[in-house]
Simulated assay, not measured.
Amino acid sequence: MKFLCVVYEEPNNGLGPQTEKEADDLVNEHLDYDETLRQSGHWLIAQALQPVETATTVRMRNGKISITDGPFAETKEVLGGFVLIEAKDMEEAVQVAARIPSARMGFIHVRRVYEFEKK
């Protein structure tokens, strides 16, 4: 089964990197964990996202496109990235997600991927 681990950060909670070295160390820790996931057979893909200030929100209503700079709504959590994994069940997926380094600073939302087949 595939599970999407959505990484949310809470930038104002004081738990994230405070210096450039701490930020570099966190990136390296993520890259090391990606390699651990590859070796265990769980890893499918992982990507970090640029800061939320670089985002654009797109809506389509009544055939018209509406574009807004930045996030859809003000929240204290921001989407930081994702990890797509293979796991035998939700319990295993949660154990894998709990070891994602950013879980210590924010939270990881774990959802099973619904795999469609064309009929």
Rank of each mutant, 00 (worst) to 15 (best):
P101F: 00
R111Y: 01
D89S: 04
G80Y: 00
E92M: 03
E9R: 06
K118M: 03
K2W: 01
N13M: 09
P17E: 08
Q50Y: 06
H109R: 06
E86Y: 06
E74D: 14
P11Y: 00
G106D: 05
K64M: 06
Y114E: 14
Y8T: 01
E9V: 02
D32M: 06
E20V: 07
K118Y: 02
E20R: 10
H30W: 05
V78W: 04
S66H: 07
V52C: 05
A55H: 04
T19R: 07
R61S: 08
G63A: 11
T75W: 05
I65G: 03
D32Y: 05
T75D: 08
S40L: 08
H30L: 15
M90C: 06
K88Q: 13
M60S: 07
H42R: 03
I45K: 11
G106F: 05
I108T: 08
A93I: 12
Y114N: 06
E117K: 12
R112W: 01
E117H: 05
T19M: 01
A46G: 15
V7R: 01
L79C: 07
A98D: 13
M1E: 14
L4S: 09
G81A: 07
T56L: 12
F72Y: 15
V58F: 09
G63P: 10
P101G: 00
A97Q: 09
T75Y: 04
C5S: 09
Y8V: 00
